[in-house]
Design a binder for these strands. Structure first.
Lengths: 338, 338
DNA sequence: TTGAAAGCGCTACCAT
DNA sequence: ATGGTAGCGCTTTCAA
C-alpha cells in the first residue's frame, strides 16, 4: 500500500506537494497537480484516514450510538441522521449499544477514542448522571430521544407526558375505565413519563379509573404476547390496553385472540410510535405518532453545530425546538364501550 | 486532552511504560503499573485510536457496509454481525450506502481509508465487476446476501432460485395458474434468480401457466400498494401474487382490499423473508423464511478469518457453507382454488 | 510554486 | 523492569 512518500518519489516531488493535492489545497502548479494525480491513480494510492486524523483536529464525521439495532424505531432514527449526513456530505459512524449499559458506554468511548466531535447518542441504559458528565465534557454531544433536565439544551426528546395524556384522553372518551398499561423496564424514563401523563389526565375526569401498570422486559412482539399472558394469568379485569409501542400492541392483540378475545370488540388496544406495522395490522392499530425521524435530523444538526465550537450555552435555547409533539392517530383497534 | 507523554511526565516514567500499561503489556512492575493507572484515571486520559491505528497494522474492528438502513432485513443482518462482534469483543463500524451506487462505493472507500481489514459488505447497487476487483484487492472482504460466481468463496448468499421454486411449488399445488410476480428493480439479482427459480419450477408441470413479472421501485409497503394499482389498472387477470418481500406483500394485500378483493379468497399472496410483519398480518402471511441473521454471522466470521491472513484460496471452499437454504412457511394468505 | 523538516500521539525495538 | 528513540503516514509551518 503506497504512502505519500512513495507517490512523492514516483512523481519527483516532495511529500508536501502530494499532501496539498490530496487536500485540494492551493499552491500547486497545474501541471504538477495533474502529474501527481495521475501517479496517485496509477499506484492506487489510498489516503490513510488515521494518519490524517492524527494531524488535523477536526474529525468531521458524525459518530452515532444507538441503543438497539433491532428496534424498528432505529431505522427511522438512522434514516434521519443519514439524511443530514448526506446533505452535508459527511460520513456517519454507527456503534450499537445492544441495549446494555456497558456496551453503550463502550460505544461512546470508542467514538471518543477516535476523536469524533459530533456525537448523537441514543442511550436507553446509561444513567442521567453519567450522561450529564459526558455532556459537560463533550461539547458536540447530543442526546436523542431522551430528556435530562440538567442538560436539556443538549437533548432532543418527545413529550412523553403529552403522549400519555393523548392515550388517556382517547381511551376515556371511548368509555373505558379498567385500563392496563404495558411498559418496559430499564432506565428509560419514557415509560414513567407516559404513565405520569396517563395518570394526570385520568385525574382530570370525575370518574374512578382502575389502572394497572405492567413492566416487562422486551419492547417487542413477543414481549406483548408475554405481557398479555401474565395479565390473563393474574385474572385482571380490563377493557383496554395501552402499550409502550406498536410491536407490543401487535403481540398483545395476537395473544388476546389466542385466548378467544377479539380486538376491539372485547378489548381495545393502543400502540405507540405509528410505525408501518401499525397500519398493516388487522385491525389497524390506533396509536400515537412519534416524529422520531425529524428528531434525529434535528439532533444531528445540533450536534454538528455544537461541535463546530458554538457552545451550547451560547445558542439560545428554545424548548419548543427540542421537545417534539406526539399525535393521536385514530384507527380501528379501540372501540367505544358502555 | 492529555497525551501519553503528559501521563509519563506526571508519573515520572517513560512514555514506553505508559504504552505498556495501556496495552496491558508485560514488563511493567506492579507498583509502577498501578501508579500509571491512577494517573491516567486522574487526568482522564483517553487513548487516541487514530494514533494507535497508525502504528499497528491491524485494525481489529469489523467494517460493515449496508445497502439500506431502512430495510427491515437490515436489522437482522446488523444483529447477526453484532453477535459475532460481541462474542469476539470487537468493535463494528457501520457505514450505510443509502441504496445508491455512489454512496455504497464511498462507504467502502471510507472504511478502507480507515484501514479496516475485515469488511462485510451488503451491496445492492454496485456491479459485479467492481465488487470482484475489490474482493481481489482486499483479502478480508466478504459479500453478504449476494452471489457472484467468480468470487463465490467470498460470498454468503441465499439460494434464491430455490426460494423461487418453493414459491412456485406451493402456488401450483394450490391450483393457481395465473400468477403475478412483483420484483424490485436495481442491480440486485435476487429478483432475477427467484424469477428463474419460479419459471424453472413451473416448467416441470404439464400445465400452461401465465406469469407476469412486474418490476417496480421500492421494496416497501408503499411499493406493494403501487404495484397492485398498476396490475389492476392494466386489467391483468390473476389469482396469485408472489411478492419480493413481506412488506410488498402486505402493501399488496392492503391495496387489494381497497379494491374490494379479499385475501386469500379472491387472491392469494405470498411474501418473502418471514419477518415479524408476516406473522402479525391478518391474514397471516404465507412466506419464505430467509435465514439472514445466520448468514450475517457466517459472513462476519469469514471476513474475520480472511483478514487474519488465511487467504480465501487456502480455505477449502464448501459451497453448502456459503449458500443458505430458504424454507416455505405456510400460513393463511394462500388458498386452494379450482 | 515548491521543498525541508518538525511534529501529531503512539508503539516497539534496542539498550540498560 | 525501565527508558530512549526511531518511526508510522500525514499536515503544516517556514524558507527558498
Amino acid at each position: 500500500m503506497p504512502t505519500i512518500k512513495d507517490i512523492a518519489k514516483a512523481a519527483g516531488v516532495s511529500p508536501a506537494s502530494v499532501s496539498r493535492v490530496i487536500n485540494n489545497g492551493p499552491k500547486v502548479g497545474a501541471k504538477t497537480r495533474e502529474k501527481i494525480k495521475r501517479i496517485m491513480r496509477e499506484m492506487q494510492y489510498q489516503p490513510n484516514a488515521n494518519a490524517q486524523a492524527i494531524n488535523v483536529q477536526n474529525n468531521a464525521s458524525i459518530g452515532i450510538v444507538l441503543a438497539d439495532l433491532t428496534d424498528p424505531l432505529f431505522a427511522k432514527m438512522a434514516h434521519g441522521i443519514e439524511k443530514i449526513a448526506v446533505q452535508k456530505d459527511l460520513q456517519i459512524f454507527l456503534n450499537s449499544g445492544a441495549f446494555d449499559r456497558t456496551s453503550e458506554l463502550n460505544a461512546i468511548e470508542v467514538l471518543l477514542e477516535h476523536r469524533y466531535k459530533a456525537l448523537v447518542v441514543h442511550s436507553a441504559m446509561i444513567d442521567d448522571k453519567t450522561l450529564i458528565e459526558y455532556a459537560r465534557k463533550i461539547p458536540g454531544l447530543v442526546l436523542l430521544n431522551r430528556h435530562i433536565r440538567e442538560i436539556e439544551n443538549r437533548c432532543i426528546w418527545l413529550d412523553d407526558k403529552l403522549g400519555g395524556a393523548l392515550m388517556a384522553d382517547h381511551i376515556i372518551e371511548q368509555g373505558h375505565k379498567k385500563i392496563v398499561v404495558i411498559g418496559v423496564d430499564g432506565i428509560q424514563n419514557n415509560t414513567r413519563q407516559r404513565l405520569e401523563g396517563i395518570k394526570a389526565q385520568l385525574a382530570k375526569y370525575p370518574v374512578h379509573y382502575e389502572i394497572e401498570m405492567l413492566e416487562q422486559g422486551a419492547a417487542t412482539y413477543e414481549g406483548g404476547e408475554i405481557a398479555v399472558q401474565n395479565i390473563l394469568a393474574r385474572g385482571m379485569e380490563f377493557s383496554a390496553i395501552l402499550a409502550y409501542n406498536d410491536a407490543i400492541a401487535v403481540g398483545a392483540v395476537s395473544m388476546l385472540k389466542a385466548h378467544g378475545l377479539s380486538v376491539p370488540s372485547d378489548v381495545s388496544v393502543m400502540g405507540f410510535n405509528n410505525l408501518i406495522l401499525a397500519q398493516c395490522m388487522k385491525p389497524k392499530l390506533t396509536t400515537i405518532h412519534n416524529p422520531i425521524e425529524d428528531m434525529a435530523m434535528k439532533a444531528t444538526e445540533l450536534a454538528l453545530r455544537l461541535s463546530k465550537g458554538d457552545s451550547a450555552e451560547q445558542l439560545e435555547f428554545r424548548p419548543d425546538e427540542h421537545k417534539y409533539i406526539p399525535e393521536l392517530i385514530v384507527r380501528q383497534s379501540v372501540q367505544k364501550i358502555g
